[in-house]
């Protein structure tokens, strides 16, 4: 039997110097290696760019009726997209995605919609993460009846299909974008509370926590500086995927007329108000829906990528 030696030339010395590579660098490297997460990041990048530059690139204000711009005989309700470069007659006004039922430029509304969608996703998830983290941390750290009460409440919230609970909440507190966001925020709390509680439970009894306690650290310090950082990784993954479902649910609520109210350029609401025109003006349904799908897709791809990058044990599974 011959012994095999690994040729030293194949070892990259750079990757061996562990002290210079942080978890975030490894994560970033893994993330960029996955095609699907790169696609997610590209879509997201474009969306963020659109959201920031909307006022400059949008040809019109999102709430402006074309009646205020042109003489009435030149404008048509729900006109099909007209792009001069693609052969639309030059005497017709250019509307990249046509006009909607209230004679507004659909393209401008779509651009501003990107803003709203990102804000909706980020704000609901931030709300849910803050409340969920506090509840999960309290329950996991103190245990006993506090934990019992908190987790039973979370069980009840989870017993409702999330969209239905959000619908019930909005029906009670009244329709509107803020209320819809609040409702979606509330129904997504349990997911984060569970994640944080799980992480807290897994490290609560570890030696370094006991050491910190023995050194006289107060509860606040132990909980927030020693224990909670462990929950950061699963929270980031859950949060990214949570943004996707929050955007989807918010669009659904707006579609049902419970979320953003007209004339707010919210994709779900735009789609909802024109849904009966799907046979006569399909573009007014097609574009907002496509935009919702792409946004949700971007967050889903990124979330999946982050999960695999942060937890290599799962990498082979997706």
């Amino acid at each position: 039997m011959t012994t095999q030696t690994i040729p030293p030339a194949k070892l990259d010395v750079n990757t061996l110097s562990l002290d210079s590579v942080s978890l975030w660098q490894i994560t970033r490297r893994r993330l960029f290696r996955r095609k699907s997460s790169v696609v997610g990041m590209i879509i997201l990048g474009i969306l963020i760019l659109i959201a920031i530059t909307a006022p400059w690139i949008a040809p019109y204000s999102p709430t402006l009726s074309m009646l205020d711009v042109k003489p009435a005989q030149d404008i048509q309700k729900r006109s099909a997209p007209c792009i001069h470069l693609l052969g639309c007659p030059a005497d017709q006004p250019e509307h990249l995605m046509g006009t909607d039922g209230n004679l507004r430029d659909e393209f401008s509304r779509m651009l501003y919609g990107a803003r709203l969608s990102l804000i909706i996703g980020l704000s609901t998830v931030s709300f849910a993460i803050v409340i969920g983290t506090i509840l999960g941390a309290l329950g996991g750290y103190f245990g006993g009846w506090i934990d019992n009460i908190i987790m039973r409440i979370m069980d009840v919230l989870l017993a409702f299909p999330s969209l239905l609970l959000a619908i019930a909440i909005v029906t009670v507190i009244g329709p509107g974008l803020i209320n819809a966001l609040l409702a979606i925020g509330i129904v997504s709390i349990p997911a984060y509370a569970r994640v944080v509680r799980g992480s807290v439970l897994s490290v609560r009894e570890m030696d370094y926590v006991s050491a910190s306690r023995a050194l006289g650290g107060n509860t606040y310090e132990i909980l927030f500086k020693r224990i909670l950082p462990n929950a950061l990784t699963p929270l980031i993954v859950q949060g990214t995927l949570g943004i996707a479902s929050a955007i989807l649910d918010a669009a659904a609520l707006s579609f049902l007329g419970l979320g953003a109210q007209p004339p707010t350029p919210e994709w779900g609401a735009m789609l909802g108000s024109e849904r009966n025109q799907v046979f006569t003006a399909p573009h007014l349904v097609f574009y907002p829906g496509l935009a919702i799908m792409l946004t949700v897709l971007a967050f889903n791809l990124l979330g999946d990528g982050l999960r695999d990058a942060l937890d290599p044990r799962l990498a082979h599974m997706s």
Partner: peptide
């Protein structure tokens, strides 16, 4: 599958109907 989980069901319904 990735596109599927990201699909707003009301949009898909309307598009299928169209």
């Amino acid at each position: 599958a990735n596109v599927g989980v990201s699909m707003p069901v009301f949009w898909l319904g309307l598009m299928l109907a169209y």
